[in-house]
Amino acid sequence: MASEAYITLTDVVFSRSGRRIFDGVTLDIPRGKITAIMGPSGTGKTTLLRLIGGQLKPDSGTIMVAGENVPRLRRKALYTLREKMGMLFQSGALFTDLSAFENVAFPLRVHTSLPEDMIRDIVLMKLEAVGLRGARDLMPSELSGGMTRRVALARSIALDPELIMYDEPFAGQDPIAMGVLVKLIRDLNSSMGLTSVLVSHDVPESLSICHYACIIADGHIIGEGTPAELRQHPSERVQQFLQGQPDGPVPFNYPAPDAGSDWGLTGGAR
């Protein structure tokens, strides 16, 4: 990877409810690029974003973001660092009691002392960037799923962050909304020079816009590289995921006892 790393994870181990989610994950996320983190459902992709954002602490290992070791940061320093981060949640996570305009204005009102007319201009610019300037007065309950995510995207870039993290931005979107989101993520990255981390299991869309990608499974990174390198990756598991094959090294069936014993065919326990 030629670019300098903006985020560096080193030997990150994280367990929850007795289950090891990450078992020594090491990863560099380059500055100013789009990095896709992919993997089957339940492998901890969203958890990885929460570790980077400091919402969770790893059992061991270091997570460096913009030169700061996130798990070691004190509360105030962590909240200051988060002002450089934006995060697009899977659900959008808009504040339901605020209009689209007020949602986007929220971080500006909290973190800046800008006059009201300037806040208005910035909010309208951000809403214009996601094509929703005309929807400023709508409440979240009046927005479609795709519009909700676009307003949330406008809110997450309101403070012009250095880093933006997208949690499953394409999940449940129709093809048009998905196309709009793909274009927005690409345009925002190139126009604002953001470091973007995209968590998704939508392979074609993710590989179409990312500069670098990695695939997580069973607590490890099983493959990483540019989209072209990943497509040629020798690992069967990587190829099974990229090509969406139902069975392979990642089994289709959840581990279960012997079928004969479950149906009482072998005289085993019922």
């Binding site: 919402q55 659900s91 808009l94 504040f95």
Partner: peptide
């Protein structure tokens, strides 16, 4: 996730 999004906004 409104509380989480608030946390992530600092």
């Amino acid at each position: 996730e409104q509380l989480s999004s608030m946390e992530m906004m600092g």
